[in-house]
Amino acid sequence: MHYTIRHITRFHYTHPVSESLTEARMQPITDANQRCLNFELSTSPEARIMSYRDHLGNIVHNFDIPGHHSKLTITAKALVDVQDPAPLPDSLPISAWKELDSIVSRDDFYEILVPSPFTQATPLLAEFTRELAVGRDDDPLTLLHRINSGIFQRFDYAPQTTRVDSPIDDALRARKGVCQDFSHIMIALVRQVGIPCRYVSGYLFHRTEDHDRSAADSSHAWVEALLPGIGWVGFDPTNNLVAGGRHIRVAVGCDYADVPPTRGVFKGQAKSELSVAVSVLPSTEPAPTQMNYSPILSIGSHGAEPDWASEEFAQQIQQQQ
């Protein structure tokens, strides 16, 4: 299926800023199951867009705007062809664990087997691990399905309750959150039993008949786990889905910290407000006449002028070997 994706990101600064540098991870992946046929990124104010492939294989676009500006708009347009993945077996033999362990020992999966910044083990997570009885009693595939639906059933989808960079404890405590939280929780659970598991950022094509919980007009996140004999399989705990032909993958990493859609710094004493609009449509449909923007609560820091007199500065300056 061919999709046209529009992803518009708007930064509003409370005061004019200058020398802003921004990185965007927005170009859909091209691999066996998905082809990005066309991708365009433009900005206002205009900038020269450069790109590179990061250490995780994701395409990153970066640009800078030297002059003063109080608004920054990033528009990404992509045309993607997504294949339905081969159907999964109902379950795997219990011996799959052994096979998995041997794959893991041969190759480098270190980073997606241990906790990463957003998937730290906490007492609340341990409690939840017991609640879902996460362990190696089932075969790996059955366990993954159980975790996927377990999170779906036990958590409410509640936009704006957590921030994109919230620790999983916030969601675990409130039993509600958004796709990032559910993905982080699932990753933390899955890695504990020795299944390589990574974070995927991307988009979900919403059809009315699907009743997806996640919002249609924003980007989406889910996880991918490695299964012996099958390869990477996507699980979407937000919607209790196995990722398929409606999931469009943009970037993969250990967790959200590796793949934020945008990241940047600027000079100036200002706060930035961020709002995002996304539309995912079959390429046969006309472009939407109006985009629906929703605010995003803080994306970490879009930096500010350093305080040269601070204690912190004094400490930084002393490092030496």
């Binding site: 540098l21 990185e23 450069m50 800078d64 710094v265 970490g300 930084q316």
Partner: peptide, 18 residues
């Protein structure tokens, strides 16, 4: 580079790593 590494760095140059 505060963009690539510690975002609170006041000593570096944003974007140097790129």
């Amino acid at each position: 580079d505060p963009l690539a590494f510690r975002p609170d760095s006041m000593l570096g140059v944003a974007g140097l790593f790129n």
